[in-house]
Design a protein around this nucleic acid. Sequence first.
DNA 1: CCCTAATTGTTCGAAATCGAGATATTTGAC
DNA 2: GTCAAATATCTCGATTTCGAACAATTAGGG
Lengths: 169, 169
Amino acid sequence: MKSQQPAQVSRDSALSLWVVLARAFDSVERHSRASIARFGLGATEFGVLEVLYHKGELPVCEVRRRILVESSSTTYVVDKLVDRGLVQRRPSGTDRRVILLELTPRGRKLIGRIFPPHAAVIRHAVGALSARQQAQAVRLLRALGIGAAARLKNPQANEDRRHPNRDLP
Amino acid sequence: MKSQQPAQVSRDSALSLWVVLARAFDSVERHSRASIARFGLGATEFGVLEVLYHKGELPVCEVRRRILVESSSTTYVVDKLVDRGLVQRRPSGTDRRVILLELTPRGRKLIGRIFPPHAAVIRHAVGALSARQQAQAVRLLRALGIGAAARLKNPQANEDRRHPNRDLP
DNA sequence: CCCTAATTGTTCGAAATCGAGATATTTGAC
DNA sequence: GTCAAATATCTCGATTTCGAACAATTAGGG
Protein backbone atom coordinates (compact mmCIF):
# COMPACT_ATOMS: atom_id res chain seq x y z
CA MET A 1 0.00 0.00 0.00
CA LYS A 2 2.86 2.39 0.77
CA SER A 3 4.36 3.29 -2.54
CA GLN A 4 7.77 4.81 -1.90
CA GLN A 5 9.89 6.74 0.58
CA PRO A 6 11.51 9.58 -1.38
CA ALA A 7 12.92 11.33 1.67
CA GLN A 8 14.85 10.30 4.76
CA VAL A 9 12.14 10.78 7.35
CA SER A 10 12.48 7.66 9.41
CA ARG A 11 16.11 8.22 10.21
CA ASP A 12 15.78 11.81 11.30
CA SER A 13 15.08 11.81 15.01
CA ALA A 14 14.27 15.52 15.02
CA LEU A 15 11.52 15.20 12.44
CA SER A 16 10.22 12.04 14.06
CA LEU A 17 10.12 13.86 17.33
CA TRP A 18 8.03 16.64 15.85
CA VAL A 19 5.60 14.12 14.38
CA VAL A 20 5.10 12.12 17.54
CA LEU A 21 4.95 15.27 19.63
CA ALA A 22 2.12 16.59 17.49
CA ARG A 23 0.33 13.26 17.55
CA ALA A 24 0.64 12.82 21.29
CA PHE A 25 -0.55 16.34 21.91
CA ASP A 26 -3.49 15.85 19.59
CA SER A 27 -4.60 12.62 21.23
CA VAL A 28 -4.36 13.92 24.78
CA GLU A 29 -6.02 17.16 23.75
CA ARG A 30 -8.99 15.22 22.41
CA HIS A 31 -9.47 13.72 25.85
CA SER A 32 -9.17 17.14 27.39
CA ARG A 33 -11.59 18.83 25.00
CA ALA A 34 -14.17 16.09 25.38
CA SER A 35 -13.89 16.27 29.15
CA ILE A 36 -14.28 20.02 29.17
CA ALA A 37 -17.13 19.99 26.67
CA ARG A 38 -19.14 17.94 29.20
CA PHE A 39 -19.39 21.11 31.26
CA GLY A 40 -20.33 23.43 28.42
CA LEU A 41 -16.95 25.11 28.25
CA GLY A 42 -14.32 25.50 25.55
CA ALA A 43 -10.76 24.42 26.19
CA THR A 44 -9.49 27.98 26.35
CA GLU A 45 -12.29 29.11 28.64
CA PHE A 46 -11.46 26.22 30.95
CA GLY A 47 -7.82 27.24 30.82
CA VAL A 48 -8.61 30.72 32.06
CA LEU A 49 -10.74 29.43 34.91
CA GLU A 50 -8.13 26.88 35.88
CA VAL A 51 -5.21 29.27 35.99
CA LEU A 52 -7.19 31.73 38.08
CA TYR A 53 -8.29 28.89 40.32
CA HIS A 54 -4.76 27.74 40.96
CA LYS A 55 -2.89 31.03 40.90
CA GLY A 56 -5.46 33.52 42.12
CA GLU A 57 -5.89 37.00 40.71
CA LEU A 58 -3.66 37.63 37.69
CA PRO A 59 -3.12 40.28 35.00
CA VAL A 60 -4.53 39.50 31.56
CA CYS A 61 -1.05 39.18 30.09
CA GLU A 62 -0.09 36.61 32.68
CA VAL A 63 -3.18 34.55 31.95
CA ARG A 64 -2.44 34.83 28.27
CA ARG A 65 1.06 33.41 28.70
CA ARG A 66 -0.30 30.36 30.43
CA ILE A 67 -3.13 29.49 28.11
CA LEU A 68 -0.98 29.74 24.98
CA VAL A 69 -3.17 31.91 22.77
CA GLU A 70 -2.73 35.39 21.34
CA SER A 71 -3.80 38.43 23.28
CA SER A 72 -6.78 39.19 21.06
CA SER A 73 -8.09 35.70 21.68
CA THR A 74 -7.59 36.20 25.37
CA THR A 75 -9.78 39.27 25.32
CA TYR A 76 -12.43 37.36 23.39
CA VAL A 77 -12.47 34.45 25.85
CA VAL A 78 -12.40 36.64 28.93
CA ASP A 79 -15.32 38.63 27.54
CA LYS A 80 -17.37 35.48 27.32
CA LEU A 81 -16.48 34.42 30.84
CA VAL A 82 -17.35 37.87 32.16
CA ASP A 83 -20.67 37.75 30.32
CA ARG A 84 -21.39 34.42 31.98
CA GLY A 85 -20.56 35.82 35.38
CA LEU A 86 -17.62 33.50 36.02
CA VAL A 87 -14.78 36.03 35.93
CA GLN A 88 -14.45 39.69 36.75
CA ARG A 89 -12.04 42.40 35.64
CA ARG A 90 -10.44 44.84 38.07
CA PRO A 91 -8.00 47.64 37.30
CA SER A 92 -4.62 47.28 38.95
CA GLY A 93 -3.83 49.97 41.47
CA THR A 94 -0.14 50.15 40.71
CA ASP A 95 -0.02 49.97 36.90
CA ARG A 96 -2.84 51.60 35.03
CA ARG A 97 -2.22 49.55 31.90
CA VAL A 98 -2.98 46.36 33.76
CA ILE A 99 -6.34 44.69 34.21
CA LEU A 100 -6.50 42.01 36.86
CA LEU A 101 -8.68 38.95 36.35
CA GLU A 102 -10.34 37.13 39.19
CA LEU A 103 -12.88 34.37 39.60
CA THR A 104 -16.31 35.37 40.80
CA PRO A 105 -17.78 33.22 43.58
CA ARG A 106 -19.84 31.50 40.92
CA GLY A 107 -16.76 30.91 38.78
CA ARG A 108 -14.82 29.55 41.72
CA LYS A 109 -17.63 27.19 42.58
CA LEU A 110 -17.85 25.96 39.00
CA ILE A 111 -14.16 25.28 38.49
CA GLY A 112 -13.89 23.73 41.93
CA ARG A 113 -16.57 21.28 40.95
CA ILE A 114 -15.34 20.38 37.48
CA PHE A 115 -11.58 20.40 37.92
CA PRO A 116 -11.27 17.12 39.83
CA PRO A 117 -13.13 14.99 37.28
CA HIS A 118 -11.24 16.71 34.51
CA ALA A 119 -7.94 15.93 36.19
CA ALA A 120 -9.00 12.32 36.39
CA VAL A 121 -9.60 12.29 32.64
CA ILE A 122 -6.11 13.67 32.01
CA ARG A 123 -4.56 11.08 34.29
CA HIS A 124 -6.36 8.41 32.36
CA ALA A 125 -5.37 9.90 29.02
CA VAL A 126 -1.66 9.75 29.84
CA GLY A 127 -1.98 6.46 31.68
CA ALA A 128 -0.09 4.53 29.02
CA LEU A 129 3.09 5.76 30.69
CA SER A 130 4.07 4.64 34.16
CA ALA A 131 4.69 7.27 36.81
CA ARG A 132 8.40 6.89 36.19
CA GLN A 133 8.00 7.28 32.47
CA GLN A 134 5.77 10.29 33.02
CA ALA A 135 8.44 11.92 35.13
CA GLN A 136 11.03 11.22 32.48
CA ALA A 137 8.78 12.61 29.76
CA VAL A 138 8.23 15.72 31.85
CA ARG A 139 11.97 16.28 32.09
CA LEU A 140 12.53 15.85 28.39
CA LEU A 141 9.53 17.91 27.33
CA ARG A 142 10.41 20.66 29.74
CA ALA A 143 13.90 20.93 28.27
CA LEU A 144 12.48 20.74 24.78
CA GLY A 145 9.91 23.43 25.42
CA ILE A 146 12.30 25.77 27.15
CA GLY A 147 14.89 25.31 24.43
CA ALA A 148 12.42 25.84 21.61
CA ALA A 149 10.99 28.93 23.29
CA ALA A 150 14.49 30.36 23.75
CA ARG A 151 15.27 29.77 20.10
CA LEU A 152 12.18 31.71 19.10
CA LYS A 153 13.62 34.85 20.61
CA ASN A 154 17.25 34.17 19.88
CA PRO A 155 17.40 32.19 16.63
CA GLN A 156 21.04 31.15 16.92
CA ALA A 157 20.57 29.95 20.49
CA ASN A 158 22.87 27.31 21.86
CA GLU A 159 22.85 24.98 18.90
CA ASP A 160 25.22 22.04 19.19
CA ARG A 161 26.72 23.14 22.46
CA ARG A 162 26.51 19.76 24.11
CA HIS A 163 25.97 17.46 21.14
CA PRO A 164 28.12 18.60 18.20
CA ASN A 165 27.82 17.93 14.46
CA ARG A 166 24.75 15.82 14.29
CA ASP A 167 23.56 16.66 10.79
CA LEU A 168 26.22 18.23 8.67
CA PRO A 169 25.55 18.20 4.92
CA MET B 1 -0.64 38.55 46.98
CA LYS B 2 -1.29 34.95 45.88
CA SER B 3 -4.22 33.90 47.98
CA GLN B 4 -4.08 30.11 48.18
CA GLN B 5 -3.04 26.91 46.45
CA PRO B 6 -6.19 24.79 46.54
CA ALA B 7 -4.94 21.86 44.49
CA GLN B 8 -1.88 19.60 44.33
CA VAL B 9 -0.64 20.31 40.87
CA SER B 10 3.11 20.13 41.32
CA ARG B 11 3.08 16.60 42.68
CA ASP B 12 0.85 15.15 39.98
CA SER B 13 3.10 13.89 37.21
CA ALA B 14 0.16 13.29 34.89
CA LEU B 15 -1.03 16.88 35.03
CA SER B 16 2.52 18.18 34.80
CA LEU B 17 3.02 16.03 31.76
CA TRP B 18 -0.03 17.51 30.08
CA VAL B 19 1.19 21.02 30.81
CA VAL B 20 4.72 20.54 29.50
CA LEU B 21 3.43 18.57 26.54
CA ALA B 22 1.19 21.46 25.55
CA ARG B 23 3.97 23.98 26.09
CA ALA B 24 6.54 22.02 24.12
CA PHE B 25 4.11 21.48 21.28
CA ASP B 26 3.23 25.17 21.24
CA SER B 27 6.84 26.31 21.13
CA VAL B 28 7.90 23.94 18.40
CA GLU B 29 4.74 24.69 16.46
CA ARG B 30 5.59 28.37 16.49
CA HIS B 31 8.86 27.57 14.77
CA SER B 32 7.04 25.41 12.29
CA ARG B 33 4.33 27.97 11.52
CA ALA B 34 6.83 30.77 11.09
CA SER B 35 8.94 28.63 8.80
CA ILE B 36 5.95 27.67 6.68
CA ALA B 37 4.58 31.19 6.58
CA ARG B 38 7.79 32.25 4.81
CA PHE B 39 6.51 30.38 1.79
CA GLY B 40 2.98 31.77 1.87
CA LEU B 41 1.42 28.58 3.17
CA GLY B 42 -0.60 27.68 6.24
CA ALA B 43 0.54 24.86 8.49
CA THR B 44 -2.25 22.56 7.37
CA GLU B 45 -1.70 23.31 3.70
CA PHE B 46 1.95 22.46 4.17
CA GLY B 47 0.95 19.26 5.91
CA VAL B 48 -1.08 18.12 2.93
CA LEU B 49 1.73 18.87 0.51
CA GLU B 50 4.25 17.15 2.70
CA VAL B 51 2.32 13.93 3.18
CA LEU B 52 1.64 13.68 -0.54
CA TYR B 53 5.30 14.39 -1.20
CA HIS B 54 6.50 11.64 1.07
CA LYS B 55 3.76 9.07 0.59
CA GLY B 56 2.57 9.70 -2.94
CA GLU B 57 -1.07 9.58 -4.01
CA LEU B 58 -3.45 9.06 -1.08
CA PRO B 59 -7.18 9.09 -0.36
CA VAL B 60 -8.55 12.15 1.38
CA CYS B 61 -9.29 10.16 4.51
CA GLU B 62 -5.69 9.01 4.72
CA VAL B 63 -4.40 12.54 4.37
CA ARG B 64 -6.85 13.65 7.02
CA ARG B 65 -5.54 11.11 9.52
CA ARG B 66 -2.04 12.38 9.10
CA ILE B 67 -2.66 16.10 9.31
CA LEU B 68 -4.80 15.83 12.44
CA VAL B 69 -7.80 17.94 11.46
CA GLU B 70 -11.45 17.11 10.90
CA SER B 71 -12.69 16.00 7.53
CA SER B 72 -14.50 19.25 6.82
CA SER B 73 -11.29 21.16 7.36
CA THR B 74 -9.49 18.77 5.08
CA THR B 75 -11.90 19.56 2.27
CA TYR B 76 -11.39 23.27 2.89
CA VAL B 77 -7.61 23.05 2.74
CA VAL B 78 -7.55 20.76 -0.27
CA ASP B 79 -9.90 23.13 -2.10
CA LYS B 80 -7.42 25.92 -1.60
CA LEU B 81 -4.52 23.84 -2.80
CA VAL B 82 -6.48 22.73 -5.87
CA ASP B 83 -7.37 26.34 -6.61
CA ARG B 84 -3.68 27.19 -6.45
CA GLY B 85 -2.83 24.37 -8.82
CA LEU B 86 -0.68 22.49 -6.32
CA VAL B 87 -2.86 19.40 -5.80
CA GLN B 88 -5.34 17.52 -7.94
CA ARG B 89 -8.24 15.24 -7.11
CA ARG B 90 -8.82 11.97 -8.91
CA PRO B 91 -11.60 9.44 -8.32
CA SER B 92 -10.43 6.05 -7.18
CA GLY B 93 -11.08 3.23 -9.63
CA THR B 94 -11.76 0.59 -7.02
CA ASP B 95 -13.90 2.43 -4.44
CA ARG B 96 -16.18 5.07 -5.80
CA ARG B 97 -16.50 6.77 -2.41
CA VAL B 98 -12.83 7.57 -2.46
CA ILE B 99 -11.11 10.62 -3.91
CA LEU B 100 -7.38 10.32 -4.39
CA LEU B 101 -5.15 13.33 -3.88
CA GLU B 102 -1.95 13.86 -5.76
CA LEU B 103 0.59 16.63 -6.18
CA THR B 104 0.63 18.44 -9.49
CA PRO B 105 4.07 18.94 -11.07
CA ARG B 106 3.91 22.48 -9.76
CA GLY B 107 3.03 21.29 -6.26
CA ARG B 108 5.79 18.73 -6.29
CA LYS B 109 8.29 21.32 -7.36
CA LEU B 110 7.18 23.68 -4.61
CA ILE B 111 7.29 21.21 -1.75
CA GLY B 112 10.58 19.80 -2.99
CA ARG B 113 12.04 23.24 -2.76
CA ILE B 114 10.66 24.29 0.62
CA PHE B 115 10.78 21.04 2.58
CA PRO B 116 14.55 20.94 3.18
CA PRO B 117 14.80 24.41 4.75
CA HIS B 118 11.69 23.69 6.78
CA ALA B 119 13.21 20.47 8.07
CA ALA B 120 16.27 22.44 9.09
CA VAL B 121 14.07 24.77 11.10
CA ILE B 122 12.47 21.84 12.90
CA ARG B 123 15.87 20.34 13.67
CA HIS B 124 16.90 23.64 15.13
CA ALA B 125 13.68 23.98 17.11
CA VAL B 126 14.17 20.65 18.86
CA GLY B 127 17.92 21.11 19.15
CA ALA B 128 17.83 21.55 22.90
CA LEU B 129 17.72 17.76 23.13
CA SER B 130 20.65 15.63 22.07
CA ALA B 131 20.10 12.92 19.46
CA ARG B 132 19.92 10.40 22.26
CA GLN B 133 17.39 12.44 24.17
CA GLN B 134 15.38 12.94 21.02
CA ALA B 135 15.23 9.21 20.47
CA GLN B 136 14.14 8.70 24.06
CA ALA B 137 11.48 11.37 23.72
CA VAL B 138 10.25 9.74 20.53
CA ARG B 139 9.82 6.43 22.34
CA LEU B 140 7.93 7.96 25.23
CA LEU B 141 5.75 10.20 23.09
CA ARG B 142 4.93 7.38 20.72
CA ALA B 143 3.73 5.23 23.60
CA LEU B 144 1.85 8.16 25.06
CA GLY B 145 0.15 9.01 21.79
CA ILE B 146 -0.77 5.45 20.95
CA GLY B 147 -2.11 4.87 24.44
CA ALA B 148 -4.14 8.05 24.50
CA ALA B 149 -5.56 7.34 21.05
CA ALA B 150 -6.55 3.84 22.14
CA ARG B 151 -8.28 5.23 25.20
CA LEU B 152 -10.33 7.53 23.03
CA LYS B 153 -12.02 4.57 21.39
CA ASN B 154 -12.02 2.27 24.36
CA PRO B 155 -12.37 4.39 27.50
CA GLN B 156 -11.47 1.62 29.97
CA ALA B 157 -8.35 0.70 28.01
CA ASN B 158 -5.45 -0.97 29.76
CA GLU B 159 -5.32 1.22 32.79
CA ASP B 160 -2.84 0.12 35.42
CA ARG B 161 -1.82 -3.01 33.60
CA ARG B 162 1.92 -2.52 34.02
CA HIS B 163 2.09 0.09 36.74
CA PRO B 164 -0.55 -0.63 39.42
CA ASN B 165 -2.16 1.68 41.96
CA ARG B 166 -0.61 4.95 41.08
CA ASP B 167 -3.34 7.28 42.23
CA LEU B 168 -5.73 5.66 44.62
CA PRO B 169 -7.79 8.08 46.71
C1' DC C 1 13.26 65.95 32.64
C1' DC C 2 12.08 64.30 27.93
C1' DC C 3 11.83 61.41 24.23
C1' DT C 4 11.72 57.02 22.47
C1' DA C 5 10.92 52.19 23.05
C1' DA C 6 8.50 48.66 25.15
C1' DT C 7 4.38 46.83 27.47
C1' DT C 8 -0.61 46.16 28.17
C1' DG C 9 -5.07 45.48 26.71
C1' DT C 10 -8.45 46.11 23.17
C1' DT C 11 -10.94 46.44 18.51
C1' DC C 12 -11.85 44.86 14.04
C1' DG C 13 -11.90 42.08 9.93
C1' DA C 14 -10.20 37.89 8.03
C1' DA C 15 -8.83 33.18 8.24
C1' DA C 16 -8.97 28.57 10.06
C1' DT C 17 -11.38 25.00 12.25
C1' DC C 18 -15.12 22.60 13.87
C1' DG C 19 -19.77 20.03 14.20
C1' DA C 20 -23.88 18.48 12.52
C1' DG C 21 -25.77 16.83 8.89
C1' DA C 22 -26.55 15.41 3.60
C1' DT C 23 -25.24 12.38 -0.11
C1' DA C 24 -23.35 8.61 -2.28
C1' DT C 25 -21.18 4.28 -2.05
C1' DT C 26 -19.65 -0.02 -0.11
C1' DT C 27 -19.83 -3.79 3.15
C1' DG C 28 -21.89 -7.36 5.69
C1' DA C 29 -25.66 -9.98 7.79
C1' DC C 30 -29.45 -12.49 6.70
C1' DG D 1 -30.35 -10.46 -3.50
C1' DT D 2 -31.79 -7.00 -0.02
C1' DC D 3 -31.50 -3.87 3.50
C1' DA D 4 -29.24 -1.83 7.43
C1' DA D 5 -24.84 -0.27 9.06
C1' DA D 6 -20.47 1.61 8.01
C1' DT D 7 -17.48 4.54 5.29
C1' DA D 8 -15.94 8.63 2.53
C1' DT D 9 -16.59 13.05 1.15
C1' DC D 10 -18.62 17.30 1.02
C1' DT D 11 -21.87 21.43 2.41
C1' DC D 12 -23.04 24.96 5.42
C1' DG D 13 -23.35 27.77 9.45
C1' DA D 14 -21.14 28.87 13.72
C1' DT D 15 -17.24 29.28 16.62
C1' DT D 16 -12.61 30.06 17.58
C1' DT D 17 -8.32 32.04 16.61
C1' DC D 18 -5.27 34.98 14.57
C1' DG D 19 -2.87 39.37 12.87
C1' DA D 20 -2.50 44.01 12.30
C1' DA D 21 -3.62 48.12 13.97
C1' DC D 22 -4.50 51.25 17.99
C1' DA D 23 -4.61 54.01 22.52
C1' DA D 24 -2.95 54.27 27.06
C1' DT D 25 0.72 53.74 30.12
C1' DT D 26 5.23 52.82 31.86
C1' DA D 27 10.36 52.18 31.59
C1' DG D 28 14.89 53.58 30.34
C1' DG D 29 18.67 56.26 28.38
C1' DG D 30 20.69 60.57 27.50
